[in-house]
Every structure is written in C-alpha cells, then in structure tokens.
Design a binder for these strands. Structure first.
Lengths: 202, 202
DNA sequence: GTTTTATCTTGACAGTGTCAACATTGCATT
DNA sequence: AATGCAATGTTGACACTGTCAAGATAAAAC
C-alpha cells in the first residue's frame, strides 16, 4: 500500500491524493481538507498537487465525480430489478437514496452542495459524470409516470425536479440536522412514498 | 448613517457590523465575508468585532437569525389570510417560499445550510428564532391536514418534514443551480402543489 | 474622584491557497 | 546510446484568513 518514499517522482500521486482526500472528506468533512496537509501526508511538497489538479476546487470535483458514478451505479441496480413490482422499487429507491445520503453525509454534501457548483466552478469531468446522473432521475420519473405510479399529466422534467427535490430536501434536512433526525428516516421515506403514489392511508 | 470616525469608541459597532455583514453576504455570498475586511470597512481594528461576536460563526448566526424572524413574519402573513381559500393560500405559500429562496439565495443558504448548523455550532440566540420558525411549518401542516388539503392519515410531524423537505429541496436545487433554473420556478411550484393536493390534472 | 467595566488597539501566531522560478526525472526522438 | 522535451516535484514567497494575549482608552458606576 505505502511505497512512496525516497524517489523523487511519486509514481501515482494523483490517485494517492484522490484516495486520501476522499477518505479525509468522508471522515472529517469538506472544510477539513487542506491541500498542504494532504501533500504532507502523501510525503510530497506543498505544491506538488498542483501538477495533478488545477486547484482545490478541481480536486473536490474529482472526489464528487467518483461519488456520482458510484451513486449512478446503485440507482441503476435498484431501478433495473424488473422482477420487483414498480411500487416496491419506487419505495426502495427512496429508501436507498435517503440511506445513501445519511450514510455518506459529507460525500452527499460535496456532490449536491454549492461548494463545487456555484460560480460555474464545476469541472468538465464532473459535469460529464453528474449530468447523466441527473438525466437518469428524469428517465426514472418518466417510467413511473408511464406505469401510473406518478401523475402522468405533469411534465416529466418538472415532475422529476419535484420528486428529486423532495428527496434532496429530506436528505439535506437530515444531514444538516435542521429538524429531522436519523431515527425516523424510514417513516419519512414511507411518508414521502405514500404522498407521491397518492395512497391515502386513512 | 455614518458617524464613526475619530472617536475611540465606535458607538454602535455591533449593529454596524451586522448590517454591513448582512449586505455583503446578500451580495457576494457567505464565503466572501471576512472579519478583517468588515472591521476595516467599519473603520475599526481587526479584532474589535470580537468584543461583539464570539467568533465568525456567531456573526453569521446573528445574520441568519434576522433572516429567520423576517421569513417567519412573511409566512405568518400569508397563512393568516383567512379570507383566502386554503387551497389558494397553500399554493401561494409554496410560491412565496421558493420565491424567497430564489430572491435571497445567499441568505437562504446561510439560514438552511450546514455552515451555521453543523457541529452544533448554532448560537442559542439563533435557535430561539429558528425553532419557532420550524414549529410554524408543523402547525401549518396540521392545519392543511385538518382542512383535507393534505392526507390526514399521516403523522403531522412526518408530513411536515416531507412537505418542507420538498420546498427545501427545490429551493436548493434552484440556488445551487444543479438542474433547475429560475425560468421554471412557477411551473415547479404548481407541480409540487398539485402533487401534494392530489389533484390529477389528466 | 476612584474604580470597575466595556470597548478598542497593536502584536503575534498558525494556518490557508496559490503563483513563480528552479530541480529532477522519465520518455521519445534522433 | 545521447539528447531534448515534457512531466513531475521542490523551495521561496505573497497575500490572505481567524483568533488569542496584553495593553490602552473611554465611559459608567460607585
């Protein structure tokens, strides 16, 4: 695992930085990430990272990109279970989404927070991974509308924005600890699912 | 407005800082706020602000507190229009909520972002203003359930978390510019309203 | 009038991201 | 194999940042 050491060239600094940074972010949060510390931990000088990432934002973008492709895979896995009834898959997707956010709060914050998106700061590489991920959300919504799970009268994009917005909002409220706490995750998910699927429980 | 100047004591540094900071945040964002610059602009030394705010986070909390009481007033104003039909008020509330977020993105980000809430960093003063604001959301939800606008079978708190989550999520997607843009705000709001009120448009 | 308290000051420290200039290495081409 | 260029890594420096400690000044309290 640790080769590095006395050679002038590190060998694979880029991935080493990326992995260390990912770990650090996951554990201690975005704000705790310091390029200088990261370089030191990798046994390399302060400015070495700049030969692999344009700036700190670019490194964060790269981390987020990994998160997106990872989540995209998970989402597809759930959605592609054609043997499971759509209602169940829908419900399962909601639980998985919120679960992912709750289990990887720092990564979620990075992926969907303003840090990397504001001021058009997103890397081209990040966009190429993230946008298909967004598009997938729309595609799923369309499918759910076709199967009658969601109201078909609404525009699919609009509908996707609202459904995803709901999941996103719940995730953020949870992560930021604003007024939802982890002990009621499942109930919240089911409540959202019921609302979407227009299942009145009374 | 600008007295300040050559007196050793500023006179009302606290409010001066608070106002300047609020303006700066609204215009250039949270990250652009520097205590040092702020002090300089107020014609005072770097560390003077520390006699009025424990640290930077406390100043941000104070700004956010202002935002909360302001929003709380707006929310109550809309909700208390008893001559307007509940459906209309509900719809109006959604539009106002998203509108407020879209018009004051930086303030919204500050109020509902992780910056001041993570690590239990919120000031007591902030909590005292923010929590009633959250509670109001629950109260409104209860009312909407009673009037049959929202499903009554669900737990009110859970329901409030989901409905607010939706608004919060849409707001964040808009603000962070993730995949919703300002030109479709109204349509998104109506889509959400329809979904909540279980009005199938087809 | 003296003492206490609130407020403001300078000095200092430990950080940060990032640029410029220079050093070393590996790869490709002659 | 020798040479030259591009990739990669290094030190030095700059301009910032938040925040603490110790001392100065003014206002308020006694």
């Amino acid at each position: 695992m640790t080769n590095a050491a006395q050679t002038y060239h590190h060998g694979d600094l880029r991935t080493a930085l990326l992995e260390a940074a990912t770990k650090r972010v996951a554990e201690f949060g975005i704000d705790s990430l310091s390029l200088r510390k990261l370089a030191e931990d990798a046994g390399v000088s302060r400015t070495a990272p700049y030969h692999h990432f344009k700036d700190k934002s670019a490194l964060l973008s790269a981390i987020a990109a990994k998160g997106f492709s990872q989540w995209h895979t998970t989402a597809k896995r759930i959605f592609d279970q054609h043997d499971v009834a759509p209602q169940l898959r829908f419900r399962q997707f909601i639980h998985e989404y919120i679960g992912y956010a709750a289990d990887n709060p720092q990564m979620y914050e990075l992926m969907f927070g303003r840090t990397i998106w504001h001021d058009n700061g997103a890397t081209q590489g990040l966009k190429e991974v993230a946008y298909p991920c967004f598009q997938f959300q729309v595609d799923m919504t369309k499918y759910w509308q076709q199967t009658g799970l969601l109201p078909a009268g609404q525009d699919a994009l609009r509908m996707a924005q609202v459904t995803w917005g709901t999941l996103h909002g719940i995730a953020r409220l949870l992560i930021d600890g604003i007024y939802a706490d982890r002990s009621h995750i499942d109930e919240m998910c089911d409540c959202a699912a019921d609302l979407f699927m227009q299942v009145s429980k009374n």
